[in-house]
């Protein structure tokens, strides 16, 4: 499967409708493709291009800028170890070395069974809980070597399935704007008027633009 499934297509259309210009939906749609297939396939990029009205090359242009988008299959679990300054000061590089040894792959590599991909990453905003890592973008903090080994064992045994969905899934709750509640999302040109409330609650005679 690579083009969007009917269900994902519906979600994709809903996402596109949330922006004044369809192209703005590109990043969320690339994430949706990655959620469906585990990585971003060529067919998915073609489908996205059709949906937002740009060329597949433009989709690839955006896709290739961002590190989270994978153009090739990665492990079910993407293990990202931070080695930036706060983590480095507290053993982040040693943790990465241990992870590499335990998984038997260098950073960037995937285990032969296709379960784990190890990456060295930049600061993930958990600097006061160093050293830290993410598995499929779920945090594990203050990690010792033993913690790491246990984590890998638990993931491999499926014990963390309820907390850590397979690679590609970010938020498990989607925004949904009810049709009867929306203010009305329109293209830029159609919004070129002063909003109705700009002079609300003004004392008579007062005026001016905020």
């Amino acid at each position: 499967m690579a083009r969007f499934s009917p269900e994902h297509l519906e979600t994709a259309r809903e996402i596109i409708a949330r922006y004044p210009r369809p192209k703005s939906a590109l990043i969320p749609l690339l994430h949706l493709a990655q959620e469906q297939d585990g990585y971003v396939t060529d067919d998915a990029m073609r489908h996205i291009a059709e949906l937002v009205g740009v060329t597949p090359a433009e989709v690839l242009g955006t896709c290739s800028f961002y590190e989270m988008f994978k153009l090739h299959p990665v492990g079910t679990y993407l293990v990202n170890v931070c080695t930036n300054i706060s983590c480095m000061l507290c053993g982040g590089e040693e943790l990465l070395a241990h992870a590499s040894e335990r998984l038997g792959v260098a950073p960037g590599g995937t285990t032969p069974d296709g379960r784990f991909t190890l990456e060295e990453v930049e600061c993930i905003a958990a600097c006061t809980e160093a050293p830290c890592l993410q598995v499929n973008y779920r945090y594990v903090t203050n990690v010792t070597n033993d913690d790491f080994d246990r984590l890998i064992d638990d993931l491999a045994a499926g014990k963390l399935d309820h907390e850590v969905p397979p690679h590609g899934t970010l938020a498990r709750v989607r925004q949904h704007i009810p049709a009867d509640r929306t203010a009305g999302i329109v293209p830029v040109a159609e919004a070129a008027v002063e909003p109705a409330w700009m002079h609300a609650n003004e004392a008579p005679g007062a005026g001016g633009d905020a």
């Binding site: 949330r18 922006y19 703005s24 990043i27 969320p28 690339l30 994430h31 961002y66 590190e67 989270m68 988008f69 970010l170 938020a171 925004q175 704007i177 929306t182 203010a183 009305g184 999302i185 909003p195 109705a196 409330w197 609300a200």
Partner: peptide, 11 residues
């Protein structure tokens, strides 16, 4: 006052 607030996310 009417407005839509949309969540976007990076990569």
């Amino acid at each position: 006052y009417s407005i839509d607030v949309v969540m976007a996310w990076g990569a």
